[in-house]
Simulated assay, not measured.
Amino acid sequence: MGTVVDFRSGRSVFGARDDDGLTRVELTWVEKKIEYWIRFGSVAQEKILDRHRRIVSFRPGTVFALARWAANDFGTIISRIDIVRAVAEGEAHQTLPFVRPGGDILLRSEGWPRVERVLQLIDGIEQLGIDPEAVSADHWRHVHNRLTAGQEPRAYTLDLHRAHLLRRRVQQ
């Protein structure tokens, strides 16, 4: 899929993948109203649109966490976190709001108690000295499935991470 250009302005449309093959994520931050942020992941590019919005881009294969929270006058209306692997052009993917063209969704969690639990698990992985971006995709899927079933996920350990790195090295 190539670049889609607005015929009036000649500019690239955000909803399409540019020729650079990056996955783009639109982030919005309006204090105490809309707060979308990247919890982890190596950003390849960043474009500031205005004081409340920016677009960050990820290279194919990069794993990142997108957290979204929004509220109105009556309280929280959305609390969600998605852990996503950016896909290469032509690769199968799922669509996701604010992510273009989409990605391989490894974990999706909604509701503050579940989102908070995922954030705690990410903190725990970082306390082991492991970058959450480098964690096995299978582990994120495991966490998703266990939380969906209302069960506690197994902890990610240094031994599991070493096994993942060795398996990845052998597969290359």
Rank of each mutant, 00 (worst) to 15 (best):
D19L: 12
V4H: 02
G61K: 00
R11C: 02
S79N: 14
P101K: 02
P97Y: 14
P153N: 12
I34M: 11
R17I: 03
R59M: 04
R100W: 13
R11M: 01
R169L: 14
R168W: 04
D19H: 08
S9R: 01
E46D: 04
L27E: 00
M1N: 12
V25E: 01
G150K: 13
R146I: 14
A149W: 10
H164M: 13
N145T: 14
H52N: 09
D50R: 08
F14K: 04
S136Y: 04
V143K: 04
Y36I: 11
L119D: 10
R59S: 03
T23W: 04
I48H: 13
V87Q: 01
L128N: 07
D20V: 05
I77Y: 06
S109T: 05
V25M: 03
I78E: 05
I77C: 12
M1I: 13
L66F: 10
G2F: 09
F58P: 00
T76Y: 05
P113E: 04
I81T: 01
D131Y: 09
R85C: 03
R167K: 15
F98Y: 07
A134Y: 09
Q171S: 15
A88K: 10
I77N: 10
R141A: 07
D138Y: 06
L107S: 02
I77G: 11
I38S: 02
P97C: 15
L160P: 02
R8G: 00
R17M: 10
Q94S: 14
P60C: 10
G61Y: 04
Q127M: 12
R141P: 07
A163H: 08
L165H: 08
M1E: 07
L119F: 05
G61W: 03
R39E: 11
D82Q: 06
V25P: 01
V118N: 00
L160I: 07
S109F: 02
E31I: 11
V30K: 11
S57E: 08
A92R: 13
V63D: 04
V56I: 06
D159Q: 04
A65P: 03
E126P: 09
Q120L: 14
R51E: 12
L147K: 03
I55C: 05
R8E: 00
A16V: 09
T23D: 00
L107W: 13
G111T: 08
R146P: 00
R162E: 11
Q127Y: 00
V56G: 00
A163S: 08
D6F: 01
L106W: 08
T76C: 15
K32N: 10
H144K: 04
F64K: 07
G90D: 03
V115K: 08
D123F: 05
I34R: 05
V56N: 02
Q45R: 11
L160Y: 01
D50C: 10
R68K: 14
N145P: 12
E91P: 02
E26G: 07
F98S: 05
D20I: 05
V4K: 01
H142S: 10
T62Y: 00
V5D: 00
W140Q: 06
E31P: 05
P153L: 14
A67R: 10
V84E: 01
E91S: 06
N72Y: 05
Q45A: 12
E133D: 09
T95W: 14
E46K: 09
I78S: 10
W29G: 05
